[in-house]
């Protein structure tokens, strides 16, 4: 297929924008979750509202708001930056809930022991909470990554030629929509499988090293 390079270019765009959002979205989600977990006054409520609204917003609507709306509040964003920011904001809200649920479920006994031995809040989090919480959150975080990739076609509305857009363009030009769409489907599947494979690999690594039941 002569159109393969175009398709792969689209795939590259999808992958890079998604990757940027994934990499930044995980720590951002953690930061938001910690704010709520520690019940920081005022900020907690702001985060709660932010998460609630963003989780209810379709990716397309958010992308349109960020790209077309940001000049109104004095920020000028290029399409790619707006695209990455959209996915980042979206995924950070979902990641916040994932991290928060793990933090809330964290056994208080272990924290009590850490407190009793004179560990400061930062030390407790770094040595006791985080090493365990990232492992329990991993499956949900990876699931959210796959959802992010599935939401990424929304970015076409702000002019990003992602994998789906590329496939649709090829189909429109050749009057044969089926082959490029099917090829795109395969590529998305590969991306998802790659993520899930990476997750299984990390889990196996952790299990061998730490021998956790």
């Amino acid at each position: 297929m002569a159109d393969l390079p175009l398709l792969l270019q689209g795939a590259l765009v999808t992958a890079s924008v998604s990757l940027a959002a994934i990499v930044l979205g995980i720590p951002m989600g953690l930061a938001l979750a910690i704010v709520r977990w520690q019940r920081i006054p005022v900020l907690s409520q702001v985060v709660a509202a932010y998460v609630s609204v963003i989780r209810a917003t379709p990716a397309i609507t958010l992308a349109l708001l960020i790209f077309f709306g940001s000049p109104s509040i004095g920020i000028v964003l290029g399409a790619t930056a707006a695209a990455a920011l959209t996915l980042l904001i979206n995924t950070s809200a979902f990641n916040c809930e994932i991290w928060r649920s793990a933090l809330i479920d964290f056994p208080r006994d272990q924290l009590e022991a850490a407190r009793a031995y004179g560990m400061s809040p930062l030390l407790r989090f770094r040595r006791i909470v985080f090493p365990q919480v990232w492992r329990t959150s991993l499956p949900a975080l990876v699931n959210e990554m796959t959802l992010l990739i599935k939401a990424s076609p929304a970015l076409a509305v702000i002019g990003i030629v992602d994998l789906t857009r590329a496939a649709s363009r090829i189909g429109a030009a050749t009057y044969q929509p089926l082959p490029p769409f099917l090829a795109a489907t395969v590529i998305y599947m590969l991306m998802v499988m790659l993520l899930v494979g990476a997750q299984r690999f990390v889990e196996r690594l952790v299990r061998e090293r730490f021998d956790l039941a």
Partner: peptide, 21 residues
Amino acid sequence: DAMRCVPFLLFAYLVYYGLPE
């Protein structure tokens, strides 16, 4: 399994452009 791997928009395109075929 297939539906869970495919982005919805891609599937919507498939239906929209594919049905006329």
